[in-house]
Structures are given as structure tokens and as C-alpha cells.
Simulated assay, not measured.
Amino acid sequence: MKIVELECSCGTVKGRLKVVPGSFFHVHCLCRDCQKFAGYLQNKDKILDEHGGSELFQTYPAYMEITEGQEQIRGVQLTHKGIYRWYCDCCKLPLANTLRSAKVPFVGVSVKLMKFASEQQKIDILGPVTLKAFGKYAIGDMPKDAHMRFPRTFLPKILAFMAKGFLGAKSRPSPFFIGDAPVAKVHTFFDKAE
């Protein structure tokens, strides 16, 4: 196990993340909602890569801790049944994604929040990106190693990950829920068509 320090762009929100072998996925998401989230924060240049992708580290909530700046945590929901997207109000940097229930052992942490001395150190600790999904929404050319959608072949890994999280009670403690309640009001930002 390794510990990664977390810090937002302005240094107000800080925390730490446990990187436990066999308990995470290092992914690259090119979906429309991740791009919409960056637009909502008015921070696309700092959040998205040249293809419109977001780099995420999916693990268990019990492995993430916010130690400073909890009062800056905000949440938004982009669709009626969509996930909760958490961010720092101080500098509009994404924190993480969770499902709407505190009981689900899943958190997708923004790699932009993580402090590394170098790109090589990041790869040494997190490993390479193991999945690039929703490439059909890429800006410009789709990366050659991206899947058009979410590949079904990855589903058994996700189900095993979730089962392990439920069995190990890894949904708590969570930096985003107190009991079953979100730590901050989750605002809704729905398109008129929804």
C-alpha cells in the first residue's frame, strides 16, 4: 500500500488516498458527462486533456480522506439519475465521483487532485491507464487505444471489485457522506431536454 497526497489547485482542500494493490482501476474517461462537468466548473483547460478526457482513479471511499477544506466541498448532479460529482468550490477542481448512495463502495478520484513529483512517479504508484472508454465522444480524433463505449469485457472486473467492496464494508468512512446524507447539498444541473 502507498499513500498519495491530495491537494486542490489553490491548496485549500487537502487529503490523502490509499493506493491498495488489487483495489483500484486507473482509467481515462472521454464521456460527454465528464466533459459537461468540466464545462460546468468553467475549467476545461485544467481538467480535460486534448481529447476531452478525464483521468480517474477508481477505488473505495474508505481509502480517501479529506483532511483540510471540507467546507469547500460541493456536489452537482448532471442528469436526473446521474452520479454525484464532487468538486472544490474554491478553485473549481474536481474531487471525485460517487454513486448517489453512501452504501455503494465506489469513488472515482480525479488524478488532477493528486500530488506527484513527476509523471514517472505517478505511473510507478498508480500504474498505467488500464481502460480508455467512451472514445466516440472524443474531441478531435479518437485515441487509438480507446474503446468506443464501455467494453462489456470489463464488466466482470467491475462486478468483482464491487463485491469485494461490499464484503469488506469499504463504502465507509466516506469523505462525501455522513451516515447516508451527503456532506454538502448536491445541486442539480439538468438540460431542459431531460
Rank of each mutant, 00 (worst) to 15 (best):
residue 70 Q to P: 12
residue 62 A to I: 13
residue 86 W to A: 08
residue 31 C to N: 00
residue 94 P to R: 07
residue 62 A to L: 12
residue 59 T to H: 05
residue 28 H to V: 04
residue 84 Y to N: 15
residue 105 P to R: 05
residue 46 K to M: 08
residue 74 R to I: 13
residue 84 Y to M: 10
residue 47 I to K: 04
residue 51 H to S: 03
residue 50 E to T: 00
residue 62 A to P: 02
residue 33 D to H: 06
residue 55 E to I: 09
residue 107 V to P: 08
residue 65 E to P: 06
residue 104 V to N: 13
residue 93 L to F: 09
residue 82 G to C: 11
residue 42 Q to N: 14
residue 35 Q to K: 02
residue 90 C to D: 13
residue 53 G to D: 01
residue 39 G to A: 06
residue 93 L to H: 15
residue 60 Y to W: 07
residue 61 P to H: 01
residue 27 V to A: 13
residue 74 R to G: 10
residue 30 L to V: 03
residue 56 L to F: 11
residue 73 I to R: 01
residue 32 R to E: 13
residue 44 K to F: 10
residue 107 V to E: 10
residue 53 G to A: 11
residue 54 S to E: 14
residue 62 A to M: 10
residue 47 I to G: 00
residue 80 H to G: 14
residue 30 L to S: 06
residue 84 Y to P: 12
residue 27 V to D: 07
residue 72 Q to W: 14
residue 33 D to A: 05
residue 41 L to M: 02
residue 45 D to A: 14
residue 53 G to L: 07
residue 102 A to Q: 08
residue 31 C to M: 01
residue 94 P to L: 02
residue 103 K to P: 13
residue 101 S to T: 14
residue 58 Q to F: 09
residue 51 H to I: 00
residue 36 K to L: 12
residue 97 N to C: 10
residue 81 K to D: 14
residue 48 L to G: 02
residue 94 P to Q: 12
residue 82 G to E: 12
residue 51 H to D: 01
residue 82 G to M: 08
residue 44 K to V: 12
residue 81 K to F: 15
residue 59 T to K: 00
residue 86 W to S: 08
residue 102 A to S: 14
residue 89 D to A: 15
residue 99 L to K: 15
residue 73 I to N: 05
residue 48 L to Y: 01
residue 94 P to H: 07
residue 95 L to T: 07
residue 33 D to T: 06
residue 36 K to F: 09
residue 102 A to T: 01
residue 47 I to C: 03
residue 31 C to P: 02
residue 29 C to Y: 06
residue 74 R to V: 11
residue 101 S to K: 07
residue 49 D to P: 02
residue 73 I to A: 03
residue 34 C to V: 01
residue 53 G to R: 08
residue 100 R to T: 15
residue 81 K to G: 15
residue 87 Y to K: 03
residue 96 A to K: 06
residue 97 N to G: 11
residue 94 P to E: 07
residue 89 D to K: 12
residue 92 K to Q: 14
residue 27 V to G: 02
residue 71 E to Y: 11
residue 46 K to T: 03
residue 46 K to D: 11
residue 40 Y to P: 08
residue 87 Y to Q: 02
residue 64 M to Y: 11
residue 33 D to M: 08
residue 34 C to T: 04
residue 80 H to V: 15
residue 76 V to K: 09
residue 40 Y to S: 06
residue 39 G to M: 02
residue 107 V to Y: 08
residue 36 K to V: 11
residue 79 T to D: 10
residue 83 I to R: 15
residue 94 P to S: 07
residue 105 P to G: 01
residue 50 E to R: 05
residue 42 Q to K: 14
residue 28 H to F: 06
residue 76 V to T: 10
residue 69 G to E: 05
residue 27 V to F: 03
residue 84 Y to D: 11
residue 26 H to R: 10
residue 36 K to T: 05
residue 77 Q to W: 10
residue 91 C to V: 14
residue 54 S to M: 13
residue 36 K to R: 15
residue 38 A to N: 04
residue 35 Q to S: 00
residue 35 Q to F: 05
residue 83 I to G: 13
residue 98 T to A: 04
residue 92 K to C: 09
residue 85 R to I: 12
residue 31 C to G: 07
